[in-house]
Each structure stands twice: as structure tokens, then as C-alpha cells.
Simulated assay, not measured.
Amino acid sequence: MLKFFRKIRKQFIAEKKVGNYLLYAIGEIVLVVIGILIALAIDNANDNRIKREKEQVYLKGLKEEFDISKTKLEELIKVNRKSYEAAQEIVLLMEDGNVATEETFSNLLSDAFTNDIFFNPNNSLLNEMINSGSLKDISNDTLRIRLTNWISTIDDIANQEKMLGEERNNTVNVFRDEGYSIHTLLDYTGMSKKLGIPLRKNPISNLGALESVAFENNILLFIITSQSTEIDHYIPLMTSLDSILEMINNELVE
């Protein structure tokens, strides 16, 4: 096409038809501009396609991470609830004045204070995206903000879990410092055998702890902190997690 215009242009120059020459010169410029615009449009389309493909890879990876994190959080909520419910049972034994067996008390202590409560979400890809600046490749502004806020939320959860761990340790320390026997607890929960520790021939009773005001105070603080961890932190966190997963699923191309 351009050769055709050049041929005509030479002909007009040779024939000294200046007006027609200018018209065809403008047409030639227009064609060049159109060609450039088409090339730019193709490049932009290719760039957008590459970005969308990259975004889909990230979204699929994030979905996998958050699905695993949700499973972890669901299990953690169950463990935390089992802990404070066992602690509540101990308080009931104290209040009712019922004579508990050594085995019952030991198992309740184990259920309440054995497990550390700590949420460990799968954030490897998300952290990598934030550190590398790749979070900008997520086109949904709301989702991008939620992902950024997720990290700070996890930090808040960790602070609450630290408080809960301190209350757990305080309760266990009172139990130990007032002269009650960890060995007896291990014997009656079956842990001595698993740890290769010989059973005591004359185990020390721990039932006196049910009359300890200091022990009760620490258990009550532990229950309050455990329930606060669930109600004020884990449940809202689960809501946020579900919202993020919903947005990720909506952005994924089938």
C-alpha cells in the first residue's frame, strides 16, 4: 500500500500537481499513524493478556493457601473450645464440692492446658507477593486491600494468643508451685508410659488443687481469655477469611 502511494506521489511531483501531492502525502501519514496505533493496540492487548494470566496464577495459589488456612483455623477453634470447656469443668468441680477422681481431674487438666493455641496460616505466596510488589497484579482493588490487611490482622491474633499462652502458663505454674504433682497427672493420663517414665507406687494426690483459690483465679482468667480469643478474634478472622476466599473465587476464570 505504501509503495502504491509513493508511486502516485512521484507521478504527482513529476506532473507538478502540488495539491494532489499534498493530499496523498497526508493520506500516507494517516496510514503510518494508523499502523502505529494498531501495533500499540496489539502490544497492549498482549500485555493485558500476560497480566491476566499472571493474575490467574496468583489467584489459584492464594486460593490454595487460604483454603488450607481455613482448615487450620477451624481445627484451632475446636482445640481452643475443648481447652476452655475442660477448664470450665474444673471450676464446676470446685463449686459443686463433688469429690472428683484423680483420673477425671488429671484428664481435665490435660485437656485444658496441654495444647498451645497458635494460628499458623499459609502465607508464603502472599508474603512473597507483598515483598516483591506483585500484589499490584491483583486487579480487584477490594481484594488487594483485604489481602494487605490480612497480614496485620494475623499480627493482632498473634498478640492475643501470646496473652492466652501467658494465662495458661500462669495456671500451670500455680499448680506446680503449690506443691501438686505433674508426675501424678502424667500417670493418670497415660503420658508416663508414652514418655518412658515409671509410674509412682504411691502417687501424690492433686485433688487439693480444687480447693485452691489462687488456682481457681488463674483458671477463671484462662477461661475469659480463651473465650475472648474465640469470640473477638477467631470468629471475625474466619469471617474475613471466607470473604477473601469468595472474592478470589469470583475473580478466577473457569
Rank of each mutant, 00 (worst) to 15 (best):
D137Q: 10
R200P: 07
K51W: 01
V79G: 03
K60L: 03
D67V: 01
E254D: 14
E65F: 02
F12R: 15
S69T: 15
G97W: 05
L37N: 13
A158F: 01
K136M: 08
G27D: 11
I224V: 15
G190N: 07
K193W: 01
H233T: 06
M163A: 12
M238Q: 12
S69G: 08
N249H: 01
A214V: 06
T153G: 08
H183G: 03
L92D: 09
D111P: 00
K72H: 13
V18P: 01
F118M: 13
L210T: 03
T153E: 11
L108E: 02
N98P: 00
V30C: 15
S243I: 03
D96R: 08
P203L: 03
F66G: 07
M238R: 04
V33T: 14
D232H: 12
K78E: 02
L195W: 07
G97D: 07
K201R: 07
K10P: 02
G61N: 00
I90G: 06
R200S: 14
I204K: 11
E161D: 02
T171W: 06
Y234I: 00
K16T: 13
L221K: 10
N173Y: 13
S192C: 04
I36F: 13
D47E: 09
K60F: 05
F215P: 02
L2R: 15
L92H: 12
S134H: 14
I42C: 05
Q56M: 14
R168A: 12
H183R: 10
P121M: 10
L220R: 15
V33R: 08
K194V: 10
N249S: 12
Y234C: 04
E254M: 02
D111C: 07
L62A: 02
D177V: 12
F113L: 15
A112I: 06
I42H: 03
T239F: 08
N122M: 11
Y84R: 10
N122A: 11
M191R: 06
A158V: 08
R146F: 09
K201N: 12
P203D: 11
S152P: 03
E75M: 04
F215L: 03
N127R: 14
F105A: 05
F118Q: 15
V18W: 12
L126K: 04
N217C: 00
Y84D: 09
Y24N: 09
M129P: 07
S110K: 10
A45V: 04
E178F: 09
I231R: 11
L126G: 03
G196H: 03
K194M: 09
R9W: 00
D141E: 12
L135C: 02
D43T: 15
L199S: 13
A214P: 04
I151G: 06
E65R: 07
I248G: 01
F105N: 06
M94T: 05
L126W: 02
Q88M: 11
E53R: 09
I197E: 11
T184I: 02
L125A: 12
D47G: 02
